[in-house]
Design a protein around this nucleic acid. Structure first.
Lengths: 148, 148
DNA sequence: ATAAATAGTTATACATTTGTAACCATTACA
DNA sequence: TGTAATGGTTACAAATGTATAACTATTTAT
């Protein structure tokens, strides 16, 4: 029964969500100055390269006014830049700066320190399984959720 | 190299995090009256049965004063109950009520409607893979992150 | 018996997120 | 040309989450 399979997937993802909140969002507040919202926006830009303000909102299902606030802060810190679209001057395109790209990687390292300290306790077999499984979850979720 | 594998896992989880935020936390605000924090607490109680206030805080790495606020609201709605521990009267144990257990399941259904509408577009093969992969990620993350 | 430690609450200040409406500039269209 | 639609910002109110300190009650340990 496919419906049962779908229910099980939803159940699994709902269970995983707070575990990621705990191991990723929480350390973010202690070890970096970036907010979860800002981190999500940087991640969207890393994946898609250039996004309009509306596109970012769709990527994250966030209201546009909130995107403006987040992007303003990211610009202050030099992580991203605004660039008006020559073909449609209403559109504001956002892209990562070199600094933004580099710092994003650094922040990911810092944020995942705590998580990694727990992963090292796993056996080689489990690490292999978790690596493959997380890769698969990531790929499929991106394929169905990525943009709109 | 195990280190590379660990880095890859962290990278995957950091990528998955905003996708779950988008597909789970966001619909929660539109389709239910419960907050993400309240939902996380209910999930912890569902898994562990009974937890002290401090235990809940450890499960989610949340500060105790915030737990108090969340639990107060869950009690107002009749989802959980306080119960002082007879062996150590400082400790306040929290447990789900019947209503809490039932409503938790209902809320999960409501929250995952949107997600499921996207999952049905996947082929049987992919559903099978995602089911197995999400199950594996869930199990291993619970094993290393669950309590403290 | 007293002091230190623990569990939880209360209070407070602040940051982040959410939601809505109004507004401007630009584009699409009739 | 005039009107509607779109992309984005601004302004504002409210909810939620975060961080810290002070406080009470209880337990532990000396």
């Amino acid at each position: 029964m496919l419906k049962l399979k779908i229910d099980q997937i939803a159940e699994n993802l709902i269970t995983i969500h707070p575990l990621l909140y705990k191991s990723i969002s929480r350390p973010m507040r202690n070890q970096t100055s970036i907010t979860p919202g800002g981190m999500f926006v940087l991640g969207s830009l890393k994946r898609h390269g250039i996004l309009s303000m509306s596109d970012i909102g769709k990527c994250l299902s966030m209201p546009k006014p909130h995107i403006t606030v987040i992007v303003d802060k990211l610009i202050e810190e030099g992580y991203v830049e605004r660039q008006s679209d020559p073909k449609d001057r209403r559109i504001v395109n956002i892209h990562l700066t070199d600094k933004g790209l580099k710092d994003f990687e650094d922040i990911k390292q810092a944020v995942s320190e705590n998580l990694k300290s727990k992963l090292v306790k796993l056996g080689e077999e489990e690490l292999e399984q978790l690596s493959a499984a997380s890769q698969k979850v990531k790929e499929i979720l991106i394929s169905i959720l990525s943009k709109e």
